[in-house]
Design a protein around this nucleic acid. Structure first.
Lengths: 193, 193
DNA sequence: CGCGGGTTTGATGATGCTCAAGCCCGGTGG
DNA sequence: CCACCGGGCTTGAGCATCATCAAACCCGCG
């Protein structure tokens, strides 16, 4: 259960056995069934989640009740509402299990402790957040600069895994279009004749 | 020149005088005139920039030559192409001075050194990147969930400073609409009669 | 077998873009 | 000092993209 977590960290920084022990102590396991919520809009997100196994989706809900997918998280990914977690504000996101999940969670205040106890963990998180920023930036670039079919094309180029594992209506939401539009884009793309 | 930089860091973490000295040594000053480029699309972004004074805009350019503003940076802000800086890939962004700027820059490899020499600096950057993630997330939420006039309304609520200092055509680009559309939105909003 | 979620298809309509022109205003040079 | 220029902003008309609404379809599952 903890193997993937430690592997992912060791991929970026060195950890002694003792440090690995400490890290494990602060991450508590949690299971979610399909369709269960990890976080609901309005609650404060007070812990960071690592996905050992399964998949999660984060989405915001607008005035009209429409849901907009902000991100997905698969095995080895991290999930949470960054704005809530680091701003101590109520979450605007809902996070839900797309499949049965095995998760590892650390509470925000425990993570602060861990940063001090294991500096390498803090370094890991710094790197992790750098990559998250980079990913968000790229996402914004496509969202602002490309039209529907280009966004879809780029998505399947860059994240074939995602395209394969996620139902089309959620991919549509992630791309910022309706399922109908995505359907037409795909038709266009694969039956160009 | 270095005061604002150190202030911003000390706002989040403690620094001894010796550490402040070390940090200063790695940040080298640079001046930019209005309209000058800090980074051009295609080059690798190999340094992180702190704005002591002035303002910068980062934008990506699409196939048709249209520019899409990704972010602004004012006094006390950080700028760079995260995807390029942390992914070692050619930048898809151009960064340009909107006003004469006084900047402080640190090279990526020097920053790695600094992380080790001054752990508090690494902590600061971790926090800084957390906040950047949170900001990107909020931006994506409005971009996906709100229509043009709602995005503009939220912008002037949340960043009146930005709305005051930036010409409308750049705000339009930041919001993902054309200047014409923004103009009509503003008319609508302030002359509702 | 029938239900229901996800996907597709079609017709219609709104939002926001494009193109084109005019306006406002500050800066420059005669 | 004024006339001219140019960039930023506004306004208008027509149009493309994509959303909406509605219905049919497909297929796994109870």
């Amino acid at each position: 259960m903890y193997n993937l977590l430690l592997d992912k960290i060791i991929e970026k920084v060195n950890l002694t056995c003792a440090e690995q022990e400490i890290i494990q102590q602060y991450f508590v396991p949690k299971r979610l069934k399909k369709r269960q919520y990890l976080l609901q809009e309005g609650n404060v997100c007070d812990r960071l989640t690592f996905v050992s196994n399964g998949s999660l989706v984060s989405y915001s809900t607008d005035d009209k009740g429409c849901e907009h997918v902000i991100s997905f998280a698969f095995d080895g990914c991290w999930a949470g509402d960054w704005a809530s977690l680091y701003g101590k504000q109520p979450s605007s996101l809902t996070i839900e299990a797309l499949q049965p999940c095995e998760l590892l969670q650390i509470r925000a205040e425990h993570q602060e402790l861990l940063f001090t106890l294991v500096p390498a963990y803090e370094r890991f998180m710094r790197i992790n957040h750098q990559n998250t920023c980079a990913a968000f930036q790229r996402r914004l670039e496509s969202s602002l600069g490309l039209c529907a079919d280009e966004r879809y094309t780029r998505l399947i180029e860059e994240s074939p895994v995602l395209a394969a594992r996620i139902p089309l209506n959620l991919i549509a939401s992630y791309l910022g279009v309706t399922p109908e539009t995505l359907s037409r884009v795909r038709k266009q793309k694969y039956i160009p004749a």
